[in-house]
């Protein structure tokens, strides 16, 4: 029995730790969004839910023993060249390409974490924040017209007049 648990830990949990965390967080968020009665609690669930996805993305950019993808010695002169050379594109690929060509600095791309997921998640965070902000504004409006943020109380108020 112990062996089974141990091998399970070794095969499934440890190497895929990030996935487990994101799935658990996501489920917590989803649960809160669907079952909570209070609109603000729903929004907290939503924030957790979105954060879980951000975690997934960011965690797949990680490489063992890699640094953050900021190339400090990429001087001003290089930038000019960089702009002129139209073939140079994404940061990591471009610099390695560039490096090998000019024998300037050989950049090992394994030493840097993949920056693209970070870039993507920057956008996703912006989206998430604006969604949250908008949703809070809407809940304020709901509070203004119903005087409560509890879903069941709102529905109670709607029942006599509402038809649907």
């Amino acid at each position: 029995m112990d062996i089974i648990i141990a091998s399970f830990l070794e095969d499934s949990i440890v190497p895929k730790f990030n996935y487990w965390i994101y799935v658990i967080l996501m489920m917590i968020g989803l649960y809160a969004m669907i079952t909570k009665n209070n609109l603000i609690k729903k929004l907290i669930g939503m924030a957790i839910f979105q954060t879980a996805i951000i975690l997934l993305y960011v965690s797949v950019g990680v490489k063992a023993d890699a640094n953050i993808p900021i190339i400090s010695h990429h001087g001003e002169k290089d930038h000019v060249e960089h702009a002129q050379n139209e073939n140079l594109d994404s940061a990591s690929e471009a610099s390695s390409h560039h490096g090998s060509k000019k024998e300037h600095h050989v950049i090992d791309k394994n030493k840097f974490a993949n920056p693209l997921p970070h870039v993507l998640m920057l956008t996703a965070i912006v989206v998430g924040v604006s969604t949250l902000g908008l949703a809070l504004a809407i809940s304020q409006k709901v509070h203004g017209s119903f005087g409560t943020l509890e879903e069941d109380e709102i529905l109670d108020q709607l029942r006599p007049g509402g038809y649907d």
Binding site: M46, L134, A135, I138, V142, I154, L158, G162
Partner: peptide, 15 residues
């Protein structure tokens, strides 16, 4: 009622 409907839409839409 629109605000409440919109709120539900936010939740579903985000999911």
């Amino acid at each position: 009622r629109a605000a409440l409907s919109s709120f539900n839409y936010v939740i579903m839409g985000t999911i």
